[in-house]
């Protein structure tokens, strides 16, 4: 009955629309399938290459995967009486790792704050230099911490300071970018008001911009602190002091000292979870008000 009401030309038009729609759908499906195929090919061939170039194979490795943790746990359990003593013994190293993270976050945040304000459109002290400061932050962000840390260890000798400088530089770049993105959305009216009273650039930023962005900035900084605790533990492993350094020494001893490794694992795990929890609770509180 409906067929009768549609004239032949209209019908042809509908068919044409339907055909072109189906062609589009087919093409989209083909692209999707192609992307998926390329991605799977990359994953599989990447895995095969990685497996090929690894010292131990993937399939053998899984069977041994639990051997080492089992050794550590059993040895730690055998010498469980030592554990409290070891935890106390390595606590200063944990403090060093956390101090590296805290101080580098603090210094990095201060440098990043200045860099971000200097590279945000509308706020910059010298608008012409915005690209310069942006590139500077890009470079700071791109240099992995280990590069700076290893070079500084060669010059300054081992210890926490090379790790601290390395992480602080990277933090300045990373936080600077995040800060700058947040500062771009700032309301400029308070800044204008301050300008009309004759406030200089520092006062305008300090009193006009910072109060607006402080919750965001603090939340980014806390997140960065979490990341930096991990980074500072890892850098210890390549000779920059703290818990990672102790872990490497304990591992170098091999079996017989696994109780020490276990104590370090416990401390590191505990510290990471503890600071993650505190920071995420505080971050939620900071962003709730918005």
């Amino acid at each position: 009955m409906t067929d009768a009401t549609i004239s032949a030309p209209t019908r042809r038009a509908i068919d044409r629309i339907q055909d072109s729609y189906m062609v589009q759908v087919r093409r989209r499906r083909m692209y999707g399938g192609l992307t998926l195929a390329i991605f799977s090919l990359l994953m599989v061939s990447g895995f095969v290459i990685a497996d090929d170039r690894n010292a131990g194979g993937f399939w053998d490795g899984w069977r041994q995967m639990l051997d080492f943790p089992a050794d550590v746990v059993s040895e730690a359990w055998e010498k469980r009486a030592n554990l409290p003593g070891l935890l106390v013994k390595y606590f200063p190293a944990l403090m060093e790792t956390i101090n590296i993270a805290a101080v580098s976050t603090l210094i990095g945040a201060m440098v990043g704050l200045i860099l971000s304000l200097l590279s945000t459109r509308g706020l910059a002290r010298w608008p012409r230099l915005i690209p310069v400061f942006r590139r500077l932050m890009d470079i700071l962000r791109a240099v992995p911490e280990i590069v700076i840390a290893l070079v500084l260890i060669f010059i300054l000798g081992g210890g926490p300071v090379p790790a601290m400088i390395a992480i602080a530089l990277h933090t300045a770049g990373a936080l600077g970018k995040l800060y700058s993105e947040a500062a771009e959305n700032v309301d400029l009216k308070p800044v204008e008001g301050l300008t009309s009273t004759g406030a200089n650039w520092t006062q305008r930023m300090w009193l006009g911009v910072l109060p607006q962005v402080a919750p965001n900035f603090l939340s980014y900084t806390l997140l960065r602190f979490e990341i930096n605790i991990r980074a500072s533990a890892i850098l210890g492993f390549v000779g920059a002091g703290g818990l990672g350094f102790e872990l490497r020494n304990a591992m170098a001893w091999g079996p017989g000292r696994f109780d020490e490794a276990a104590a370090i694992f416990v401390l590191l795990f505990g510290a990471i979870v503890f600071f993650d929890q505190i920071s995420s609770r505080y971050r939620n509180k900071l962003t709730e008000g918005q």
């Binding site: 895995f47 290459i49 990685a50 497996d51 170039r53 690894n54 010292a55 131990g56 194979g57 993937f58 490795g61 899984w62 041994q64 995967m65 051997d67 080492f68």
Partner: peptide, 10 residues
């Protein structure tokens, strides 16, 4: 993992 799989990209 280095204990189980040895050094390398995997």
């Amino acid at each position: 993992l280095a204990r189980a799989f040895g050094p390398g990209p995997l």
